[in-house]
Design a protein around this nucleic acid. Structure first.
Length: 213
DNA sequence: CATAGGATTTGCT
DNA sequence: GCAAATCCTATGC
């Protein structure tokens, strides 16, 4: 859980035959172990979820709806299930490449990786990278954003106080309070968020319907 | 062994 | 706003 907000502002990098591309992590979601009814690990240690129980800092990449890949960073010590879904990036490197992979020439740069499956398509991440070590700086890795440019605006100092939390997306089925937990984190106001965060509201019976979808 | 459904995106109504 | 696309895991008989 602590890892999810900590990843905000870091750079996710990809090196492939086409060259290097990457972006700043601006939205994440935390998933727990078997006790978390919204987590893939709810079914325990299976072939598919094995990376979630593996060493931290490795990737857990799965296929959803038969066509989209999603990337997680394994979060807990080996043997303990937990992972952080990368829900959105702000693209900063290899824009041409990213645009070509996405195949949507008319989209604004900011939305090219605004969504967990878009992140994977933008950086050409698929299940061949399932279990990949993200700490070694090869093929796919996470690093501190150095240098200058717009990235500096997202480094930790400025970032603190700009992190917002909300309920996780698409887990209404979980019930028992797991669906309501605010384990989705994002950089407030960032143009690359996958969708808005619901306003933090006092229960006002008649007026609103804080949906989340 | 059969089947239901999903941590999503897109395009059309 | 709604449904399709499409694979594979998990679950139940």
């Amino acid at each position: 859980m602590e890892l999810a907000p900590a990843l905000l502002g870091l750079r996710l990098m990809r090196e492939s035959a086409e060259g290097r591309s990457g972006g700043l992590i601006v939205e994440t979601e935390a998933y727990g172990g078997p006790e978390d009814r919204a987590s893939h690990a709810r079914a325990g240690h299976t072939r598919r979820t094995a990376p979630m129980f593996g060493p931290p800092g490795h990737a857990y990449v799965y296929l959803i709806y038969g066509l989209h890949s999603c990337l997680n960073v394994v979060a807990e010590a080996e043997g303990v299930a937990g992972a952080v879904l990368i829900r959105a990036l702000r693209p900063v490197l290899g824009l041409e490449m990213i645009r070509a992979r996405r195949g949507r020439p008319r989209d604004a740069d900011s939305v090219l990786a605004a969504g967990p499956a878009r992140v994977c398509q933008a950086l050409a991440v698929d299940r061949s990278l399932d279990g990949h070590d993200l700490t070694r700086g090869e093929a796919l890795w996470i690093e501190e954003p150095g240098g200058d440019g717009p990235e500096r605006l997202l480094t930790s100092g400025v970032l603190s106080g700009r992190i917002i939390a909300g309920p996780r997306i698409g887990v209404a089925y979980a019930g028992e309070g797991w669906a309501e937990r605010r384990w989705r984190f994002g950089v407030a106001g960032d143009p690359s968020l996958s969708r808005p965060f619901p306003p933090l509201s006092r229960p006002s019976p008649s007026s609103s319907r804080p949906d989340g979808r």
